[in-house]
Design a protein around this nucleic acid. Structure first.
Ligand SMILES: NC(=O)c1ccc[n+]([C@@H]2O[C@H](COP(=O)([O-])OP(=O)(O)OC[C@H]3O[C@@H](n4cnc5c(N)ncnc54)[C@H](O)[C@@H]3O)[C@@H](O)[C@H]2O)c1
Ligand SMILES: NC(=O)c1ccc[n+]([C@@H]2O[C@H](COP(=O)([O-])OP(=O)(O)OC[C@H]3O[C@@H](n4cnc5c(N)ncnc54)[C@H](O)[C@@H]3O)[C@@H](O)[C@H]2O)c1
Lengths: 235, 235
DNA sequence: CTGCTATTGTGTACACAGTCACAAACCGTG
DNA sequence: CACGGTTTGTGACTGTGTACACAATAGCAG
């Protein structure tokens, strides 16, 4: 019985290492840019966009510079073009199929959520291990036996999977998905998992986030108003 | 229109600054310790626990040392005692009431989830702004009008709230909660929020995590097998 | 064409999380 | 009682993410 926290703290792009935090900020930039685009704004300066995202302008420019030069030196960044660029970097230019394992309460909620499509993802392939669910159509998707993952994903390959099943036997699920070519996994399951080589697993432990918030609620910085600035949070 | 990513990257404990990542690891330690406890293990060495969590033993000891000295020098850490200590630090020794805003698909899923109780949280107070839901009892909780937040939370104070509502008017919701004494907020809503002073907001943007995973799936490190060790992931 | 202003991209400096390595403390054993 | 073995807690160091500050560049006005 083991587990990890670290697993991979750097990504690669064009041979150069990129901080994972940079990738996470790209999502934020893209979302804010979408809002600006919806407002008809065509160009934006780094200091403007940076203020929206509450990041220093230098941080924003440095983040982008890891992938190339996208700014016009005295017009700033073309909103439309930057959105396209970021989408390409994140791999969401075209809508991307995603697999879901576990069609319980959480799984069904995710299936009926429309927000994913807007961000370039589509929960297309659905698995479970409950005979009562296998073969049935749930939220428009036919539910497959998890044991057939390799077969099903051969016809309809996916790179990303979401885990919303019970902890029991989850290791087998992960190994199966890895064998079927899945590259990345988002897990809502609070269980310890051996990560197969070449796979990246992202944990979404809601209880852990609550614990963090609980700590912060009880250990507030002693001096509430000293150089304090109203912060902002995105998304 | 603004937003943030940073907002607060250090916590405080006893006047000393503590890295936020340390807090997050405490959750992991506690979870693994619970498993060990369930197995009847009474003492554990830092190098053992560290291996389960895939952290260096020094990291583990350093994390704990930010809060005191809990280890017996040649017996290691008392599992039971360390669980208690971590629970106290995280503020989950006694079950803690949490408010939920928005009883839609996601909200109802969270309400019916039993995992929170096991980790020391209880979704007790429920709000919405839909007249069809206000006053009704949903999953055993009576649903209140969000506009009455301040009144309701005066009788039943909570420090933590979860947002599972629509983005529209979310700023008003946050301000109301802050005025009602809420200290920490976990938001599933992909919207830009002005954070009132003294409040901490944690974003849970599932689409952003998928984007990160998409990037990693497409930009895999060039050399798959070079000094590679099978990693582990917890929870 | 020249000078002025404003912005991008980046070399450099800094701060800090994570690692190393060791002194101090404890235990068991002979 | 001494001693080798083992572990904790922590000073010192390193790696790296972020911030600063400036050179290079573009536009524009006169
Ligand atoms: N519901 C929530 O709000 C919530 C919140 C945080 C985390 N989680 C976690 O998400 C997971 C799912 O939660 P839920 O409330 O939907 O549970 P659930 O019991 O309602 O649904 C679980 C589903 O997964 C299926 N399943 C179980 N084992 C499987 C396997 N090995 N392979 C394929 N399918 C399998 C079951 O048949 C069932 O349909 C749990 O691990 C839970 O801890 C849930
Ligand atoms: N459902 C998912 O899987 C999922 C995943 C990620 C993020 N989210 C986000 O979570 C939020 C909720 O998602 P959902 O699928 O449950 O939506 P939903 O429409 O089913 O439910 C939203 C609920 O919030 C209530 N509400 C709206 N505005 C409110 C306000 N100002 N104050 C109080 N209550 C209000 C509505 O009356 C409704 O009951 C959305 O912002 C969504 O983007 C959902």
């Amino acid at each position: 019985m083991k587990s990890i926290q670290k697993q991979l703290d750097r990504a690669q792009f064009g041979g150069k290492p990129v901080a994972l935090q940079t990738i996470e900020r790209l999502s934020t930039y893209r979302r804010v840019l979408e809002d600006l685009h919806a407002k008809g704004i065509q160009y934006v300066y780094s200091h403007q966009l940076a203020e929206y995202v509450d990041v220093t302008p230098a941080q924003l420019r440095r983040d982008l510079s890891a992938f190339g030069s996208f700014g016009n030196i005295s017009r700033g960044y073309n909103v439309q073009r930057l959105i396209t660029t970021l989408s390409e970097l994140l791999g969401t230019s075209n809508i991307q199929p995603v697999a879901l394992v576990g069609v319980g309460n959480l799984g069904r909620t995710l299936l009926s959520y429309r927000g994913f499509e807007e961000r370039g993802f589509s929960l297309r392939v659905v698995f479970d291990n409950d005979p009562a669910k296998i073969g049935r159509v749930i939220a428009g998707r036919r539910c497959f036996d998890i044991r057939e993952a390799e077969t099903v994903l051969r016809d309809q390959p996916v790179e990303i999977a979401i885990l919303a099943c019970r902890p029991q036997g989850i290791q087998g699920v992960v190994d199966r998905l890895a064998a079927a070519g899945v590259k990345s996994i988002l897990s809502f399951v609070p269980a310890i998992i051996d990560v197969p080589p070449g796979i990246h697993i992202e944990m979404e432990d809601i209880s852990a986030k609550l614990e963090k918030l609980s700590f912060l609620a009880k250990n507030r910085p002693a001096k509430p108003a000293y150089g304090y600035e109203k912060g902002r949070t995105t998304m």
